[in-house]
Computed example of a mutant assay.
Amino acid sequence: MIIPTVLLLSFLSFSVIYFAPGSAEKLLLNAKNARGFISDKTVDVYGKKLGLNKPFGRLYAHWLCSLLKGDLGTSYLTNKPVSGIFIKRFSVTFKLALLSLLIYSALGIPIGVLASVKENILCRFFLQRWRIICMSIPSFWIAVILVWFIANYIPVIPTIGYHGIKSLIVPAFLLGIMSFSNLTCVIQSKTQAVLSKSFIILAGALGIPQKIIFIRHVLKNIAAPAIAVACIDFSGFIGGAILIENIFSIPGLGLMLAEALNVKDYPVIAGTLFLLGLFINLSNFFAEMVYLIIDRRGIYEN
């Protein structure tokens, strides 16, 4: 289902951009020649040169045929190959998503285990309220507040622009802290379920140290769902990073897509969303395979 899913994604994205208001050739010419006057004849000639005067079906079929040959096309705006632009920008977005995942795991796993093992009422109260806050407040609004606060009170930390990995700390922390409650919820419920199993109670009755029981039995049983949830949320970090990048002015996929959308750069938009959809689907597939490798009961049940 991965291939038809990403092809459907490319078709829908191509359709939305094509039928959106505005002439692609005029927007592109305005972007390249912001100060000069552009006549309608110049716009028509430029559209024919790029092939933008073709109907939707022929335009999409041409892009799809090029895709099957391994060619994602060339950007109308920069005249550079889409694949090269994507790799350069995706490396920044991937670093941001990976750093967010590390923060997400560092917070979600220990807090989830603590809430289930120690039965800490205060910890559970905090988690319940934090889940409500994370679901109620959009991350981009908090991002704007963070940019204002750090720029005014902690100017040492960079917030705008990309100056290496240190520029990703604040947005990664934002994405991680706003999402770790998902992992915590799964860790907490699965740990409680495993601790109530008869073989765990029997192991304790036989005098096996709690540390060994936890490492050999509890962690092994909660590892599969934890990895599955983390991989799925990692896909969410990719999507969240695209939005957050525009606020922090990080030159990743977010800024690239925003620039392409403003001028209706079809090859960049369709190619980026296709590769992004393929990556996310492969991430989910990887999570499913890891789940089956760790917990082989799913294989036997199927």
Rank of each mutant, 00 (worst) to 15 (best):
P158I: 03
L175C: 14
S181F: 08
V170L: 11
I154T: 09
Y153P: 13
I187S: 13
S179H: 11
V186L: 13
T159F: 07
L174C: 07
G164Y: 01
A151K: 14
C185A: 12
P171I: 02
G161R: 08
I157E: 00
M178W: 07
L168Y: 00
L174H: 06
L168S: 03
T159I: 11
L174S: 10
I165V: 06
P158R: 04
P158K: 08
Y153W: 13
A172P: 05
Y153K: 14
H163D: 03
L183G: 07
H163F: 02
N182D: 07
I177R: 14
I150S: 04
K166W: 02
N152Q: 14
L175K: 11
V170W: 01
S181G: 13
G161Q: 10
V170S: 04
L183P: 12
N182W: 04
G161S: 12
H163V: 03
T159E: 08
Y162W: 00
G176P: 13
P171S: 06
H163P: 04
L174P: 12
A151M: 12
I187L: 09
Y162T: 01
I157T: 02
G176L: 09
T184C: 15
I157S: 00
G164T: 00
P155M: 08
N182H: 06
P155Q: 07
G176V: 05
M178F: 09
I169S: 00
G176F: 05
M178Q: 06
K166I: 00
Y153G: 14
M178T: 11
V186E: 11
I150A: 02
H163W: 01
P158S: 05
I177M: 15
Y153F: 10
I165G: 02
V170T: 10
L174W: 13
I177C: 07
V170M: 03
G161I: 08
P158E: 01
K166R: 03
C185G: 08
I154R: 09
S181P: 03
P155I: 06
S167D: 00
P158V: 01
I187N: 09
Y153M: 12
Y153R: 15
T159S: 09
V170H: 04
L175G: 08
F180M: 15
K166T: 00
I169A: 01
T184Q: 13
M178N: 07
K166L: 01
L174A: 09
V186D: 08
G164P: 00
F173C: 05
T159M: 05
G176Y: 05
V156Q: 10
P171K: 10
I150V: 09
Y153H: 13
A151F: 15
S179T: 07
I150H: 03
I177Q: 07
P158L: 03
H163E: 03
A151C: 14
P155A: 06
P155F: 08
P171R: 07
L183E: 05
F173A: 04
I165R: 01
P155E: 04
P158C: 04
N182G: 10
S179P: 11
I160N: 11
I187C: 14
H163Q: 04
S179C: 04
G161N: 07
N152T: 15
L183M: 15
P158A: 03
L168E: 01
I154D: 01
